[in-house]
Design a binder for these strands. Structure first.
Length: 489
RNA sequence: CGGGGUAUGGCCCAGUCCGGUUAAGGCGCCUGCUUUGGGAGCAGGAGACCGUAAGUUCGAAUCUUACUACCCCGACCA
């Protein structure tokens, strides 16, 4: 029982840490805040990448790659952008080491860089410096580019996947002729994220805009998707920004319009990161380990043979071969775990911990009866099925599981979403966790006071909220609509 | 950056107060036999310059000093 997890009830964050380590998703490295993503964790990221990449291509985007290093001077060009990122930038000052008299390796002071380099915390500056050269006329627009990359933000309080010094993400950067076109793009991409979160990750999300306090450094408007975790805290799962002409002006990116007038281009940027793996874990998993939605699971079905000797294993393997063939023909990813170094019980526990959606077990009894034992990870239910039409049966089961995982998360969110109108109820609800819809007078000052008193922030000003007036929960001033408050990761 | 704590095989850790020569135990690992429908049992085995450096001492995992790394709380951040 060495691999058992801390229960969620006992200590939620310990449960999360245990799960990440024991499900073999990632581990800490020699450098604080930098993680090693292990094969099982990386395989999940690859599934995310592949689904998102397809969606980006379908919406007209192309991939490209921009450099890791950014000249320090670029950062000075957009004032609020610097301000937002300055405190978490890693800086390269030298380009060489040497061995000193004592035989120690030291930085070679003579190898100082003319201009220091910033390791990108995000790529707006280098990209806009490049776009200036690419854009002459309205005929060069729009530019619709995405890049898959790593970025570095020097975090004081790292947590595996949720907040690490270096993380993997994608960042889209687009340039447009008109303001409306750029706004449409930013809205389209937050829509893509919401679609991906709900239909692939099985995580219901609120879609909307950020309050000014929570806005991206350098953006005019930040759109986001916000998810609720099982401990009642919110997690920002993706953001899309309408950048206005801020970066175009900072980097002098102009084009000649249809009316032969020099104009600044309109911009967007949008991104999701490996943080989504953290969201996936905290949205669905249980005290037995990871629970993966079939559409994002690197392995959808694992088959465990139950045998006493080599002859039995050989007979079972024959049958399994047929089943594997049928499943693969239906594009279902299968793993046959025929290791003879571990007992079935051990394998059951291990694959549960790793979140594989469906487990098939086949033993001598099944061979005789033409059956197979089917266990589903989301409900932990077991059933014995006839092998006939196993392909269709599993295919349907995977669809059911995907749906059930989403519905479960949706019910959880609905049960932890509240409308409140009094300050007492407001603080009380926030204390217990969940999304709290309340009226807000629209000022950053009020939001900051609320944050100071409750540690909660406005997570999102939802698109689909009724624009019904009310009174601010704190100041009693006029409010145009309810906004969503929560404590957040 | 402020306060507190920890550092002993791959992992979890006992031993440190009160110094004494094979550094204990569990997990994991290796070999063999028996097992295999929910984390196997027994037997044997390998694996540690006790975070680094200096000092005290006949003798240091244990005492002293400095350094380094990591963890927790705060500040900062999303």
């Amino acid at each position: 029982m060495a691999k058992q997890l801390t229960s969620r009830k006992e200590n939620y964050s310990q449960w999360y840490n245990d799960l990440v380590i024991k499900a073999d998703l990632a581990e800490n490295s020699a450098v604080r805040g930098s993680m090693v993503i292990k094969p099982h964790g990386y395989a999940i990221w690859e599934k995310m990448q592949s689904a998102l990449d397809t969606m980006f291509k379908e919406t007209g985007h192309q991939n490209a790659y921009f450099p890791l290093f950014i000249p320090k001077s670029f950062f000075a060009k957009e004032a609020s952008h610097v301000e937002g990122f300055a405190k978490e930038c890693a800086v390269v000052t030298h380009y060489r080491l040497k061995i000193d008299e004592d035989g120690k390796i030291i930085v070679d002071e003579d190898a100082k860089l003319e201009e220091e380099l910033i390791v990108r915390p995000t790529s707006e500056t280098i990209i806009w410096d490049t776009y200036r050269k690419w854009v002459q006329s309205y005929r060069d627009l729009p530019i619709l580019i995405n890049q898959w990359a790593n970025v570095v933000r020097w975090e004081m309080r790292p947590r595996l996947f949720l907040r690490t010094a270096e993380f993997l993400w994608q960042e889209g950067h687009t340039a447009h002729e008109t303001k409306n076109e750029a706004i449409e793009e930013a809205e389209r991409m937050v829509g893509v994220y919401a679609d991906f979160a709900e239909n692939w990750l099985g995580i219901p999300v609120l879609k909307g805009v950020k309050s000014p306090n929570e806005r991206f450094a350098g953006a005019v408007e930040t759109y986001c998707i916000e998810a609720l975790m099982q401990d009642g805290k919110a997690l920002q799962a993706g953001t899309s920004h309408f950048l206005g002409q801020n970066f175009a002006k900072a980097f002098d990116v102009k084009f000649v319009s249809r009316e032969n007038i020099q104009e600044f281009v309109w911009a967007t940027s949008w991104g999701v990161s490996t943080r989504l793996i953290g969201a996936l874990i905290m949205a669905h998993s249980d005290d037995n380990g990871l629970v993966l939605p079939p559409k994002i699971a690197p392995i959808q079905v694992v088959i465990v043979p139950i045998f006493k000797d080599k002859e039995q294993l050989a007979a079972i393997s024959e049958k399994v071969k047929e089943i594997v063939k049928v499943l693969k023909a239906k594009n279902i990813s299968v793993k046959y775990d025929d290791r003879d170094t571990h007992k079935p019980g051990f394998k059951f526990a291990e694959w549960e911990l790793k979140g594989i959606p469906v487990r098939l077990a086949i033993g001598p009894r099944d061979l005789e009866n033409g059956t197979v034992e089917v266990a589903r990870r989301d409900t932990l239910e077991k059933d014995t099925l006839q092998v006939t039409n196993i392909g269709e049966k599993i295919e349907n089961l995977l669809i059911q599981i995907q749906d059930n995982i989403f519905q479960k998360a949706l019910s959880y969110r609905d049960e932890h979403t509240y409308n409140v109108d009094t300050w007492d109820e407001f603080t009380n609800r926030l204390e217990q966790g969940g999304f709290v819809y309340a009226h807000w007078d629209g000022t950053p000052e009020t939001e900051l006071i609320i944050k100071g008193k409750t540690k909660a922030t406005i997570r999102v000003i939802p698109f689909d909220e009724m624009h019904k007036e009310g009174k601010c929960i704190l100041t009693g001033k006029l409010s145009k609509q309810r906004v969503v408050f929560a404590k957040a990761y």
